[in-house]
Write a protein that binds this DNA or RNA. Structure first.
Lengths: 132, 132
DNA sequence: GTAACTCAGTCTCAGATAGAGACTTAATGA
DNA sequence: TCATTAAGTCTCTATCTGAGACTGAGTTAC
């Protein structure tokens, strides 16, 4: 069966449940971790545990504000573990939880699709821009 | 091999390329379609072609403004086809392109993960809130 | 006959959100 | 002695999002 058929079937099921963001998994979960930084951070942490400033160096164009905020959301969702060493200067290490690591599978699928089809998308974008 | 290891390896590769959003597939592509509405719209269109107002009825809490904008972005990326029937009243039908349909596979993986692990996430969220 | 509704948007305005960059405290290194 | 580092917070501004009015011709309802 084509995956898009399965996907459509799922959508119709959510429809009957009213698409409530608090109950619909896609809305309640992917709305949050599907932002600009969450997926990138999960990829960065897939390499191994990292300290706050190390993450900031790895992904320079995230602001500290968003880095803090995104990590806190991921922690609240149980995907990331925050380990604070009460020292001076402070030492905080972030790592993926088992739940976070289990997310790597589907995320890898997405990443591979992106890598495969990015050239096609770039081409379409260029055509659209030219037509405009 | 654990998917998280593969994911980490990919991230390190992007690192060496400077993580430039214009060349990195994950940044260039998932930044755009990883927003609140794109994935939901792709799910809705996986059922079959839909007109503008039908989509709006299916997903009532998207504003017309964002519906237009998201569909245009998906069209520019080549995931969605926009078919305008020059009639009065105007008739515009949206459908997934083959590229869009090919995205259903990885997206379905993500959706299934979300459905499986949403209860765990809800539980963690509740604990976090209680502790706060 | 006229008032209301439909199509697929666009437009404006207010409110929410994101980013840039200064600031914190105590210890370390030059 | 001064600068730097750690992990953030705070403020200010810029960008983005949502609500809802508006368009214009045709179709239906009364």
């Amino acid at each position: 069966m084509d995956a898009s058929v399965a996907l459509g079937a799922k959508f119709e099921l959510w429809q009957t449940a009213g698409l409530d963001p608090d109950r619909c998994p896609v809305r309640g979960l992917l709305d949050q971790i599907g932002d600009r930084w969450s997926t990138l951070l999960i990829c960065a942490l897939a390499v191994g545990p990292r300290r706050f400033s190390a993450l900031h160096r790895l992904i320079p164009d995230i602001s500290k504000r968003m880095l803090t905020q995104t990590l806190r959301t991921l922690e609240a969702d149980g995907l990331v573990h925050r380990d604070v060493q009460p020292a001076v200067p402070p030492s905080v290490t972030y790592s993926l939880t088992p739940l976070g690591r289990s997310f790597a599978g589907p995320l890898l699928g997405l990443v591979e699709w992106a890598e495969t089809h990015f050239p096609a998308v770039l081409q379409t974008r260029a055509q659209t821009k030219r037509a405009a």
